[in-house]
């Protein structure tokens, strides 16, 4: 490489170039230092705050995945185990029949099982849940609010810019540390209090 230089071993242009090279190196070093001072060793993940969520149903369609990573979760500790569940049954359903025409869930993802008189357990099948939040709305409107939406991290790709978050009308989405990746309700909300 040195052979190619015809005039002098170090000419003016090379000198400036080398100076700028060192300057850039220092700049990158400084920037790295600045960033490290503002960094966390922890990864950040996306989560929606169920207390801000308005159940607009956009989570179901705005995710980049063909099946949204947002699913309905159920806090059993808050559930009233009602026979007449407003998260399970269509408003105006004439009977507490489990027929599809009476169910609120468009994909039939909620199963109702009898526990004991007069209580019923409602279980979400995440494979079927599309994250629309219709049941959440029903539960919040007339029930205890034990059904709510959460971003499920076994499905989420953790995009740098979450496309659901960008279009969320109530801006309920935020980045949370990966060690506390859920914003839970009921007794489960204690789960991340320690860490």
């Amino acid at each position: 490489m040195k052979k190619d230089r015809r005039v002098k071993p170090v000419n003016r242009r090379d000198f400036i170039r080398r100076g700028l090279h060192i300057f850039s190196g220092i700049t990158i070093g400084g920037l790295t230092g600045l960033l490290f001072s503002k960094s966390s060793s922890e990864e950040m993940v996306w989560q929606l705050d169920p207390n801000i969520c308005v159940q607009c149903e956009k989570c179901a369609v705005n995710c980049v995945l063909p099946h949204s990573s947002v699913k309905c979760v159920h806090s059993y500790s808050m559930c009233g185990y009602c026979d007449l569940c407003s998260g399970y049954l269509q408003p105006g359903a004439k009977s507490r029949d489990t027929g599809a025409e009476h169910q609120l869930c468009p994909s039939g993802a909620i199963t109702r099982t009898f526990v004991e008189e007069p209580y019923f357990q409602y279980t979400i099948d995440e494979e079927l849940c599309i994250g629309c939040g219709k049941c959440v709305k029903g539960c919040i409107s007339f029930g205890n609010g034990s059904l709510y939406l959460q971003n499920r991290h076994d499905r989420c790709l953790n995009c740098n810019q979450c496309s659901i978050a960008r279009l969320c009308p109530s801006q309920a989405w935020k980045r949370v540390p990966a060690s506390r990746p859920y914003i839970l309700r009921g007794d489960e909300s204690q789960r991340y209090q320690k860490g």
């Binding site: 357990q121 709510y148 953790n158 859920y182 839970l184």
Partner: peptide, 26 residues
């Protein structure tokens, strides 16, 4: 959003509540 409109049931049949699964991120 979280109103305890219905009291938590007092189960007689020894029913235990299922746990809420929280799969961890990558």
């Amino acid at each position: 959003q979280t109103q305890e409109r219905f009291p938590k049931p007092d189960f007689q049949s020894g029913y235990t509540r299922p746990d809420l699964l929280t799969p961890t991120p990558r």
